[in-house]
Design a protein around this nucleic acid. Structure first.
Lengths: 207, 207, 207, 207
DNA sequence: AATGAATGAGTGTTCATTCAT
DNA sequence: GATGAATGAACACTCATTCAT
């Protein structure tokens, strides 16, 4: 079998696994579910992935590679815009990503949970998260360089902002009925961008 | 058996369940694990809680009641301080809570994941989250009333901030080794408080 | 507590147990179900009946005492009628009994099944069955004495007829939708009564 | 694995299940009992039968297929005999079947009881019973056509007779010590055959 | 007499993984 | 490479019975 054919088989399995994980959750999804969804046999699944954990790690990478790729494309496409708009767009993009790729994001926090129990999933998650933070860092650094943002530590700010986006995403995924997500996302963007844009307040009451 | 004795038994079970859930995760924790941890028999567990889901919901409430109570106490204790400091303290408190009560917070996101599969857990989580947002809302409204914050919608801002705190908490719990949590928390507080404190920027580049 | 009060308590338990057994079947009915149905406590049930088997035996006797009493009353009331009519009425009565006392008869065959596993239930069932056969025997003997029936062994004939009634009853309880029970009962009565009424056929082809 | 091998495995399981059901009763027999009896693993049982109910239904069909096959063979073998003898032989055969295949008939009424609680068992039982009644009907119709029996409704008579046979069988299985089964079977055959053979009595005392 | 909390062996079922073909 | 039959430990949950109060 050619390498290409192998890659296609792997991808076929990953997409089936993603669909099943997304619907049932990582723990509740059985290998049999994935076998059924993929149309392959159980032996074949185990031929391509050593065990469920290895498959899970591969799905983590598969999902976030796509996410990172999309985020990178967005950042490149907006390279000519002012930094404030680029950052705002990225937050908006996170939102739209969760709309268009709901099945993908549904397992986002599930990966987090698995990460605590399964070191390999944890390592994979930390890796892809670093990529995401790097993208946000680049935009912030750009804004600082151009004088649009005040001179914060770009990577630390990026972590805070990325994490904040995750937090709102979590609420979105929870489906809390009283939340109007649009205004929540806008409020988050307003607060964070104002914090970046405005000159540092006096430090009198800071810890 | 007195009502008090019954409450104690329930609490004994809840604490054992919390410890096990925290160590193993909600799904991987078996009822047998909890039986072992509690020193009671399986029948007794089922005498007090109808099934694993009901026990899970009870643990959700048990955990967050304590969290909400602590947060409320902090807010009351700081009533005389300026709103900026109160809000900053609440964020700090969230952090310290996760330090002192790590076993408690470890299952925080696990509840989120269960929430997608188990409606009763979801409802319980939405309920306690509303309480938490209410506390943040009160502080922000106080700040707006006193002219310390600009006149945003207090409840929407509270949701954004609470969610942002959750997001950073998640990263903390993930144990990403390159993150220095102290500076991340401070950065988040700086950005959000600046956003609240400064006058609204001109709307030229807003969506 | 007076003996009468005790008897009332026992009866209260028996009626609840009968209702539960009838609805769920003997095995699927739990002591907890009966506790709930009776409104008493578990300890009280075990105070009056040593265990589930003892309660089952008591319910067997309770059910069939009523059945035997009703059958006896019918036989006495029809003492003046011709034996053919009395026997036909008894079969009809079995039918009507199953209509009016469906909850009672529903567990009839269940007792049979238990009887194979539980000797005490078996003994109880054999006892009450003997009473029933005695009633049928009396009518047949009456018919023989009066020359209405041919001189068969009354007790053997009674057993055959009682068993045949049971068999049709079983089909009735199974609820086979294609059976029209009225005509089945009538056919059974016709065949058996004809067999009893007519002179014995020549024995040429008998085993 | 060939289809034949699969059928053999299924048969191996069915025979083990039949033995266990027969000894312990349907409810008291656990899947573990059947696992032990079959020498297979629990997973294998569930690979071939979805759950206990499905296995029960399969055993019902397995048992009665054999019974029906034997009854059919008997009827064909006796095609040249007079109808009275054929019917008498069928009743005798039912008896002898229960002697030679006691473990098979032991669960007969147990199936009845399960039928009330489990619709799929009920449906299976009704199906196989229809086959049995069809065999009896054919003999009776043959007797009517040849003028040996009076012109009753053959199918209704067949139901009555089949049910009557069941009722005597139930008593046989109960093991009532005072019953002499040989004379009971003969009495039943005498009464029913006389009823069929003799001309219809006058209808004066019929309902 | 009466209560109901407590027990623990037992139940039907699931599932990640292996391996002969 | 690919299959799917086979495994058995683990799981959530039930239930007859006991016994301190």
């Amino acid at each position: 079998m050619t390498d290409t054919a192998k890659e296609l088989r792997k991808r076929q399995i990953l997409e089936s696994a993603l669909a099943v994980f997304s619907e049932k959750g990582l723990e509740r999804a059985s290998m049999d579910d994935i076998v059924r969804a993929s149309g392959l046999s159980k032996g074949t699944l185990y031929w391509y992935f050593e065990n469920k954990e290895a498959l899970t790690v591969a799905v983590v990478k598969f999902v976030f590679d796509q996410f990172i790729t999309a985020a990178n494309a967005l950042v490149l496409a907006s390279a000519a815009l002012p930094p404030e708009q680029r950052l705002r767009a990225l937050i908006t993009e996170s939102l739209s990503a969760s709309d268009s790729a709901a099945p993908m994001m549904n397992i986002y926090m599930d990966f987090f949970v698995q990460a605590w129990q399964q070191p390999k999933v944890r390592d994979a998650l930390i890796d892809v998260y670093a990529d995401y933070v790097a993208i946000v860092t680049a935009i912030i650094q750009d804004g600082i360089d151009k004088g649009a943002f005040r001179p914060v530590k770009a990577d630390v700010a990026a972590r805070s902002i990325a994490a904040a986006i995750d937090g709102v995403m979590a609420q979105y995924l929870l489906g809390n009925p009283v939340w109007k997500m649009q205004e929540t996302w806008k409020m988050l963007a307003d607060l964070l961008l104002d914090g970046l844009t405005n000159p540092a307040p006096s430090d009198t009451h800071r810890g």
